[in-house]
Amino acid sequence: MAAARPHKHSDEVQFATETSAGFAFGTDSELAEELHSDTPTELAAALRRLVHAQTSCPTYTMTSGSTPVTVTVHKDAAPTSGPDAYAFTTTLNGPRGTSVLKTTAVRRGNVLVMLVGAPALVDRHIEAAVAKLSSV
């Protein structure tokens, strides 16, 4: 697990502290877990900006080096109710094939947990990750 430090996801979104861990399940499945903390108001606002930035354009093209990659984003049902629970799936189509990542984020108080990885792994582990928020 990495040490807590200021973490900036984009020019518009910054969380006061962040720590993360990565897990590998075989050679093709990975899962990353991030914990962020800030005041509840700042954390909720930053999370909304991050999710809006990721989901506001359902299809776009980006480049990886000089290779074009088509990105499709679609919102998913949040794993838990509340205004600060989000989920979306990102599909990347390029010359080397297709990759699918799911991102799920849930805020409770001044802590946010975010899982990113293979959709089945995110779905399988999100409830345990959210349960940890009760003990923080």
Rank of each mutant, 00 (worst) to 15 (best):
I126A: 00
P68W: 05
V111G: 03
A21L: 10
G65Q: 08
S135M: 06
E127Y: 01
L121D: 09
A85R: 09
M62Q: 09
G117P: 10
A4P: 13
V111S: 08
A118I: 06
H74L: 12
S135I: 13
T80S: 14
T104I: 11
F25G: 03
N110E: 08
D123K: 02
G109Q: 10
M62V: 13
V71W: 13
T91M: 06
D123A: 02
G26R: 13
L101S: 14
G94K: 01
D123P: 05
A85E: 09
D11C: 04
V130M: 01
T80E: 06
D84C: 13
T72R: 15
L101I: 07
V122E: 08
M62L: 07
V116M: 14
L43H: 01
N93H: 09
L35H: 13
M1V: 05
V130H: 06
L50R: 12
R124N: 13
V122K: 06
A16G: 09
Q14T: 12
A120E: 14
S81I: 03
H36P: 02
L112R: 05
S81C: 07
G82V: 06
I126H: 05
H125K: 10
G65N: 11
V51M: 11
S56T: 15
E42T: 12
H9Y: 12
D84V: 13
S64R: 10
E30F: 12
P68S: 08
D84E: 15
R96K: 12
G117V: 04
D123Y: 04
V100A: 11
E42V: 06
T72A: 14
T61Q: 11
T27F: 10
S135C: 09
P58C: 04
P83I: 01
A53Y: 02
G22Q: 15
L115W: 05
G117R: 01
T98L: 03
A118K: 11
A77F: 02
R108I: 08
L115C: 04
T70G: 02
R124L: 12
S64I: 11
D38C: 04
K75E: 14
A4N: 05
T98I: 01
P6Q: 00
A118F: 01
A44Q: 05
G22E: 10
L43T: 00
H125R: 10
A78N: 04
G22N: 11
S56D: 13
A129T: 13
L31Q: 03
A4H: 03
V122P: 05
T89I: 12
V116P: 04
A129H: 04
E34K: 14
T98N: 01
T17W: 09
A120D: 14
M62S: 11
